[in-house]
Simulated scan of single mutants.
Amino acid sequence: MNGYQHYQLAEALMTQATHTQRNSLNGMDVPTVSDEQAHRLSAQAQVHATLALAAATADVTRFQRDLYNGNGEPAPQTVARKRSAAVKSASIADDFLGGAA
């Protein structure tokens, strides 16, 4: 399932959990599922909504990476990580060479 499908399922489950029907005797809306079923459906909907959010986040990260790769540039996080590693390596080398002298 992709994020959009998780979102659609979450909406469908919540619609099912909160669906009501008009009572012909008193004209009041009455739930079509029991409280226990409504709680179970709501919990399932929450899980699918969370999965939809996670998938959307992953899609954005993948889109950003593909965009930079398509333009022949490294993603900003990669550049920052490499720069940080280079600074750390240089610092370690300076400490080593300074200590050996």
Rank of each mutant, 00 (worst) to 15 (best):
R62Y: 12
S42T: 12
A17E: 00
A80H: 13
G3S: 06
T18G: 01
A90E: 13
E36N: 05
S84W: 10
A56D: 13
A54W: 07
R22G: 05
G98H: 04
R40V: 08
N26D: 15
K82L: 13
A10L: 03
V30W: 00
L25K: 14
V87Y: 05
D94Y: 03
F96Q: 14
A55L: 05
A12Y: 11
V47N: 01
S42N: 13
L41E: 07
Q37H: 02
T20M: 10
H48K: 09
A55R: 04
S42H: 09
A17F: 04
A45M: 05
L13P: 00
A17Y: 02
A86D: 05
A52H: 11
V60N: 11
G98W: 09
A10W: 01
L9K: 09
L25V: 11
S34Y: 05
D94H: 09
P74E: 02
A56I: 02
A45G: 10
H6D: 07
N26Q: 03
S91H: 10
G3V: 03
H39D: 15
S34K: 03
V33F: 06
K82E: 15
L67R: 04
A93G: 00
A43G: 02
I92N: 09
A43M: 04
A56N: 03
T78L: 12
A49V: 03
G72T: 00
I92Q: 15
A55S: 09
P31I: 00
A58E: 11
S84T: 06
A85D: 08
H19M: 08
L25Q: 06
R81D: 08
S24Q: 00
M1G: 09
H19P: 01
D94K: 06
K88P: 10
L67E: 09
E11N: 13
A58F: 04
A49R: 03
A52P: 03
L41S: 10
A17V: 01
Q77K: 14
A85Q: 06
V30L: 10
Q64S: 10
A54F: 09
A58M: 08
Q64N: 13
L13I: 01
E73D: 09
Q44I: 07
D66V: 05
K82W: 15
D35P: 11
P76A: 13
L67W: 14
Q37E: 15
G3P: 01
Q37F: 00
K88Y: 11
F96T: 15
Q37V: 04
H48Y: 05
A75P: 08
A45N: 03
V60A: 15
L67K: 14
A85Y: 06
L41Y: 08
A101C: 11
T57D: 14
A54L: 15
A17H: 02
Y7C: 05
A43C: 11
Q37I: 05
N71H: 02
Q44M: 08
A75M: 15
A75W: 04
H19T: 11
G72F: 10
Q16R: 07
N71A: 14
H6E: 06
G98E: 06
P31S: 07
G3D: 01
N26G: 00
Y7L: 09
